[in-house]
């Protein structure tokens, strides 16, 4: 289980920068990117340390704007 690896993809333009995903991520994978603004005018979420993602889906579950697509990396 420790080897479970997820790959989060972010639809940046859907994001409203609320940060709920950041708050629930157990592995501190995500952060709000204050260096840019999306078309809606928000600081969007970004993947800070993707290699830490365990594919738990917490971010995707809490996101009100369906910003995330999550892939699972099969570990053979």
């Amino acid at each position: 289980m420790a080897d479970r690896r997820g790959i989060p993809h972010i639809a940046v333009e859907r994001c409203k920068g609320c940060g709920l995903c950041v708050s629930v991520c157990p592995e501190a994978v995500l952060s709000i990117d204050e260096s840019r603004v999306n078309l809606k005018g928000y600081y969007p979420v970004t993947v800070e340390s993707g290699e830490s993602c365990i594919g738990c889906l917490s971010c995707a579950l809490i996101c009100p704007d369906v910003t995330f697509t999550i892939e699972l990396l099969d570990d053979r």
Partner: peptide
């Protein structure tokens, strides 16, 4: 690699008008 979460076909492509962080979404 497999997709374990993606946007449902039950929603349209329209972005919601809800405020940031509102759990209506």
């Amino acid at each position: 690699m497999s997709v374990i979460f993606k946007k449902t076909a039950g929603l349209t492509e329209t972005d919601t008008h809800y405020c940031p962080g509102c759990t209506h979404g």
